[in-house]
Simulated assay, not measured.
Amino acid sequence: MRNDPIGLIDSGVGGLTVLKAIHRRLPAEATVYFGDQQRLPYGPRTKQEVRTFVRQIATFLRRTDRIKLLVIACNTATAAALPALHQELPIPVVGVIAPGAKAAAKVTQTHRIGVIATAGTVNSRSYDRLVRKQDLQNQVTSLACPEFVTLAEANDLTSPHAQQVVTAKLQPLRAAHLDTLILGCTHFPLLQPVIHRAMGPTVHLVDPGVATAQRVATVLTEHQLTRLKTTPPTARYYTTGDGASFERVAQQWLSTAVHVQTVPLTDLTQLDTLEAK
């Protein structure tokens, strides 16, 4: 089991930012990534819908790739499904919200923290609770930015159009005098340069993917799941959407050749149950 891969789930390409951080932190580990592009965005969907999608993909990855640990590399899915999957899966499950909240609480100096995310994550108030749990002085201002997911999925990351959209959307947060901004959707680090320009040099951007990779390393050690093989690790990719567009974004972001396998939704909708603990 120690040599089985780490599985990652996201609604699309955004979780590749978490995957990249895991590759950097744990280069010896094999990984398998699943982007559910056919059903994105997850943000406007109900918690029950998102929970069902995550269960289906988790079951697929366990049966197909025998994953040893699952990373819910999507903030919306973490908010909707993490507690349930902790109870239902016999393998460790790591989300992205708690690591990101802790990282933001560590770096803020003024206790004015912003969160940009999907509507589902913002409405869950998960970041608000966890950031304030670290320090009751922390003040959290949240903003739903579904337009940013659209930009990332279209690979429109650095164009003048992308900068215009991001700058206009973030104007309310500039007025909040933040010193820290959590990129509370795993798509958003793909837009980090334009977000940085929009917010200005005094605002520290927190990428929860980096903190999540550290958490994965800790969990692997705690559960004695660190990979033992000395052969080069594998990296596999699945999508329910357009494989060609996924590969373009993945290869640009990961700076390596990527081959993705397309999974029909019918293969997932039959997998509504998880193997119990």
Rank of each mutant, 00 (worst) to 15 (best):
S255L: 14
H187N: 05
L136I: 12
P90A: 00
G243C: 00
R227M: 11
A28T: 13
G114N: 09
A211I: 01
G243E: 00
V115L: 14
L8S: 04
D242L: 06
R129P: 04
A154D: 15
F188R: 05
V166Q: 11
P83I: 03
I22Y: 02
V107G: 05
V194L: 12
G100C: 02
A176W: 11
G209F: 03
F53C: 03
H223V: 04
P201R: 13
R45Y: 07
T266M: 07
Y42C: 06
T52W: 13
V260C: 05
T212F: 00
I9V: 14
T64M: 12
A162W: 09
V149P: 09
Q164N: 14
Q87F: 04
D128L: 14
F53N: 02
A77T: 01
I91H: 05
S245H: 12
G95Q: 06
T234Y: 12
R227Y: 06
A58S: 12
Q214H: 08
L40F: 07
I182L: 09
Q192S: 15
T230A: 13
A80S: 15
T212C: 05
C74L: 00
A21P: 00
T17F: 12
K68Q: 09
N138T: 02
S11H: 08
G184K: 11
F34I: 00
T240R: 02
V216Y: 04
T158G: 08
L136M: 13
A28V: 09
H23K: 14
H111E: 10
V122E: 10
H187R: 06
G43K: 10
P233Y: 12
G200Y: 13
K68N: 04
P92I: 08
N123W: 03
Q38H: 12
K47I: 14
I57Q: 03
P41Y: 10
Y33C: 00
A175R: 15
I195M: 09
D207S: 03
M199P: 01
A235E: 12
Y42E: 06
L178F: 10
C74H: 03
R112G: 00
S159R: 07
L265H: 11
L190S: 03
Q139C: 09
Q214L: 05
H187Q: 06
T221N: 13
V166I: 13
T240D: 02
A152D: 05
M1Q: 14
K277A: 12
R55S: 13
I57L: 00
K133Q: 15
V203L: 01
P193I: 08
P208M: 04
L82N: 07
